[in-house]
Structure formats: C-alpha cells, structure tokens
Design a protein around this nucleic acid. Structure first.
Lengths: 160, 160
DNA sequence: TGGCTATACTTGAGTACGCAAACAACTATA
DNA sequence: TATAGTTGTTTGCGTACTCAAGTATAGCCA
C-alpha cells in the first residue's frame, strides 16, 4: 500500500478539487461578512435577512420562509432574529389566520440600516466577483451552481 | 422609499444570486460531512486531513501547511488534530531542523481508516456533483471557481 | 367531537470553528 | 552579538450555527 492510495479511483483529482473549492467558498463568504461587520455592524446573515424582508410583501415574512431563503434551520432563524429585534431592525407581528406563525417584519430603522449598508456591501461583492468574471462567465457560473440541490431550493422559493 | 430599495443598483440580482449560491455550498458540504460521519465517524475535515497526509512525503505535514490546504486557521488545525490523535489516526512528530514545528503524521490505523472511508465518500461526492455536470462543465466550473482568492491559494499550495 | 398527524416555532446542549493573545524558536540586521 | 521582527503552535473566549426535544396550534378523518 503506497501513496497512490486512492489514485485507482478514476477522476478523483477533479472531485477532490471540487471539495476544496467548495470549502474555499466558506472563506469568501466569511470575508464578505467580516467587512460588513466592521463597516456596519451587520453579519452577512443579518444583511440578507433584512434584504429578504425589504422585498417581501408588507416587508414581513414567516420564520419558516426566512429559514428556507437563508438556508438556515428554524432555530438558526430564531436566534438570528433575536439579535435583529434587539437592535430594533425587525419586529414580531402575529398572524390573524394562524396563531402558530409569527411574522418577522422590517422596521423603519431596519430599512434605513439596510440602505446604509447596501452600497458598501454591493461594492465588496463586486470586488470579490465581478473583477474576476465577465458577464457571461458570471451567468454561466450561476447556471451551473444553481443545479446543486440546496441552491436550487433557495432559488425556487424566490421566484413565485 | 418603496420596495425597489436596491433596484437602482445595476445587476444586483446576479450578485445577489451569487451570495445565495455561495451559501448553498455550505449546505452541500454539510451534507457530505453528515454522510461521512454516519458511515465512518469522520467529519469531512477529518477525511480531508487524512487524505492530504496520505499524499504527503513521509505521510506527514506541518500544521501550517495543513491549515492552508484545509482552508482553516492554525488554531482550527490544532483542534482538528487533537481529535485525530485521540482516535489514533495521526501522531505528532518533531522536526530536527526547526524546533518550532511539529509534524502531523498519518499512522497505519489512519491510513486504513482513510481507505475504508474513501469508497463511500467518493461515491457521495460523485452523486452530488457528477450527476449534475458533464465532464467539460465540471472542468469549466473548477476553472471559474479557482479564480476566487482563497480557492486559488489552496490550489497553488498543492502544485509545487 | 375527539383524537392524530403535521406544522410553526422555541429552547437546551453541543460543536466547530475564528480571533486575539501568548509563547517559543528561528532569522536578519546593525 | 544583542535585538528586533517573523514564524509555528497553542490556549481562552466568543459566536453562529445544528440537532433533538418540547410546546402550541391547525386541519383532517373516524
């Protein structure tokens, strides 16, 4: 048994590179989040949460739907919203037709915060990605990545 | 101020999709890791750590180099190796020429564990990715993703 | 109407990191 | 050859999650 342990598996190197690249993404996301925290005191999840709310009807969403959009578990959403509520960017709102659900609703302060942060954040995202890819490349990439299961679920739930 | 809050930013939707897709990857990685844990008691980081060691000269690597390969901080590596040492898959080895460094060296048990796990793991990776992409698409994707900063750093450190 | 399962959400416990600080040992510089 | 800076590693603390279990409501079907 020598060091070609796994090389009898065809095309391992491609798959292997794949996993490494996936992991690189986590680092890229972390970098975006760190900038946002430094400049505006929001994590990338905070930001995206506010963003999704700002686009929703009545600027409010059920926690379950937010979880799907953010690719988080329900408990993750509860704790994310805890922070945003404490900061005054989001408030709870109950649902007339279903007593189980509590909406998360964007406040005026939350909307303002989002607007303040968006310029810098979009610039950061651009810096990270647009510098490296042409328009068509970006589209191609989005199309390819969109085939992955979780990503697809998130994208679907955006379009209706 | 209406709900087109940010729509005056050109091509936001592409960037926006981007960030969401990136986040989807974290979920994909988690899924791979969960399978590996269930079937073999290794996290994906454990697995990749063993894999990198198995390919290294003398089946040993400095912690710093391992950190770069795994896209982890040095402290993350210390704790990852803690677990693998406790399980007997990796052992410490000192360096003659530099007293600061301690190598992580793969044990026979570690190599065996890696071999046991590799079949299932490679199958899982294939299932996740290869089903969705053709060979050329996979290459294109790897090329595009390789331009991101962290990924590039990891890839570079592999080739010398 | 009374149970049964499904859904929405929260809570407690555990984990896998990162960051900053500490320390030791190398290296270059003057 | 002292000394300043760099590099490799570990440790303490904080955080952002997950998972499993618990509670409450909803809707269905006998």
């Amino acid at each position: 048994m020598s060091s070609q342990v796994l090389s009898n598996q065809p095309s391992l190197s491609a798959l292997d590179a794949w996993v490494r690249l996936l992991r690189g993404h986590a680092a890229a996301t972390r970098e975006l989040s760190a900038r946002l925290v430094a400049e505006h005191g929001l994590t990338i999840n905070d930001y995206e949460c506010l963003l999704h709310l700002s686009r929703a009807e009545e600027r409010a969403l059920r926690r379950v739907d937010l979880a799907e959009l953010l690719i988080l578990t329900p408990s993750g959403v509860t704790r994310l919203l805890d922070g945003l509520e404490r900061a005054g960017y989001v408030e709870k709102r109950s649902c007339d037709s279903d007593a189980r659900v509590t909406y998360a609703a964007l406040t005026a302060a939350g909307l303002q915060k989002l607007q303040e942060a968006s310029g810098d954040h979009i610039a950061a995202v651009r810096e990270l990605f647009e510098v490296r890819f042409s328009g068509p490349e970006l589209e191609k990439l989005a199309e390819l990545l969109g085939r992955l299961p979780e990503a697809a679920a998130a994208a679907d739930s955006c379009s209706p």
